[in-house]
Design a protein around this nucleic acid. Structure first.
Length: 422
RNA sequence: GGAGAAAUGGCAGAGUGGUCGAAUGCGGCAGUCUUGAAAACUGUUGAGGGUCACACCUCCGGGGGUUCGAAUCCCUCUUUCUCCGCCA
């Protein structure tokens, strides 16, 4: 969430910049007035407590010196102070909660380079690269290919669990494993440390990265234990740093991790969710960075370049989009989406999303570092997929299909142990 | 799952219901000494709110309670450790 202090100090600017995301100015006004009320109550409470602390000390003194009468006299005075402080702290809690809840509803301030816009149609294409292969007229979409070569079984997954939980078989399963290993190797070679993290998280972690409270319906919830299945590794990985103060020398912190991801995707249907296009469970390798604020945009560029490198090696046609205000994720200040061209479906598939959250997550997480003056400063957090497996797989199947079978991208052959699915 | 013990500052580890935000050691930082470093010595060193700056307030795993006053007493939750059971 945004920092109240920042909103207070930059009110007009905040209002203006949030208009790109259609946030009403009245909400900001409300934050400011709630904060004022909160601080006024805090001051009153503090004074009341100070008074009663003082009295208690005096009473202690009298008891020590044996002046019980005087002590009891003072004791009588504490009653009303106690009442007052109780009422005040109740009011204060109410205000603080109201303020926090309101702040939870305000999205991150977009970076100045974020274009205005309402939907994905307004995203700005910043780069397009790679050759779209010319396929034979009878080129198949990946779900047909999956069936033809018996490498992914959607019906079987539906039988065991439900729609959106595919079963990978034989070379299909091996290709998945190869991709995970390849991605992790690329990331660790680029300086990211590999982590294995839990796939279920508690409520506090959900709040830490901003999935809660507003995206509650997107996560699977285990009621009996009050845990959530992770929708992305971002949640457990970023929460490693919840309530942490790291040393400035430790920055940047670069972590990569592979996890399955679980998303309810309620309300999704139709042709766009066919095959691997949208799943309830899928695999993803994620990169997460904790950065010094001065360096975070440079780091974002570095992450974009890193993912470009992977896509070039895979020889997949892709493009990079700068998300517009309307399509930008709630917690992000600037996001680049990567899309791979699906030749058989003749459409672009999102395979990565790389974002700088600036201090938005760090403020919720209380993730800070000590600067050179010994002051605690909120760090910047960034993350990106490198990469999401299903759509990369779809892209490979569709773009690498030949009459003889599906060729395996060269860089993956050492990982798969075969160069053709036929 | 059953029985017991514990949770204190970056770490280790004291703490009697009343100047305890907390002894002491280690670590960190600054200084003295040194050509430099080490050692030694001196000082400093938790977080948040609040203020122009002070004052002041809150925090000793989380939440609640007793009390004029709680790190210290009570309840509850969580976590860790030991023993038993089960188990990849």
């Amino acid at each position: 969430m945004l920092q109240v202090q920042f909103i207070r100090d930059n009110k007009e600017e905040v209002i203006k910049q949030l208009q790109v995301r259609n946030v009403a100015a009245s909400i900001i006004e409300e934050v400011i007035s709630l904060d004022e009320e909160r601080r006024a109550l805090q001051a009153q409470l503090d004074n009341t407590l100070a008074e009663s602390n003082k009295l208690s000390k005096e009473i202690g003194g009298y008891f020590k010196s044996g002046d019980v009468e005087k002590a009891n006299e003072l004791k009588a005075q504490t009653g009303t102070l106690k009442e007052t402080s109780k009422t005040l702290s109740e009011q204060l809690n109410e205000k603080s909660d109201a303020l926090t809840n309101l702040l939870y509803k305000i999205p991150n301030i977009p970076h100045p380079s974020v274009p205005a816009g309402n939907s994905e149609d307004d995203n700005e294409e910043v780069l397009k690269e790679g050759e779209v292969p010319k396929l034979a007229g009878d080129a198949l979409p990946h779900w047909e290919l999956a069936k033809k070569y018996d490498i992914i079984d959607f019906d079987l997954g539906a039988k065991i669990t439900g729609a959106g939980f595919p079963v990978y078989k034989g070379k299909g399963a091996r290709l998945q494993r190869a991709l995970i290993a390849y991605f992790l190797d690329k990331n660790t070679a680029a300086g990211y440390t590999e982590y294995q993290v839990p796939h279920l998280v508690n409520e506090a972690s959900g709040y830490g990265t901003g999935q809660l409270p507003d995206k509650e319906g997107q996560m699977y919830h285990i009621g009996a234990d009050d845990l959530y299945l992770i929708p992305t590794a971002e949640v457990p990985v970023t929460n490693i740093f919840r309530d942490e103060i790291v040393s400035e020398n430790d920055l940047p912190i670069c972590i990569t991790g592979y996890t399955p991801c679980f998303r309810r995707e309620a309300g999704s249907y139709g042709a766009h969710v066919r095959g691997l296009n949208r799943l309830h469970q899928f695999d993803k390798v994620e990169i997460v960075r904790v950065e010094h604020p001065d360096n975070s945009y440079k780091a974002l560029d570095g992450m974009v370049a890193h993912i470009q490198g992977i896509l070039r090696e895979l020889k997949l046609p892709y493009r990079i989009l700068r998300l517009c205000g309307g399509d930008l994720g709630f917690t992000s200040a600037l996001t680049f989406d990567f899309e791979v061209y699906s030749t058989a479906q003749e459409r672009w598939l999102e395979i990565s999303s790389v974002s700088n959250f600036e201090t938005y997550q760090a403020n919720r997480l209380k993730l800070r570092f000590k600067d050179e003056n010994g002051k605690s400063v909120l760090a910047h957090t960034l993350n990106g997929s490198s990469l999401a497996l299903p759509r990369v797989l779809a892209g490979i199947l569709e773009n690498y299909q030949t009459p003889e079978g599906i060729k395996i991208p060269e860089v993956l052959v050492p990982y798969t142990g075969f160069d053709m699915i036929s």
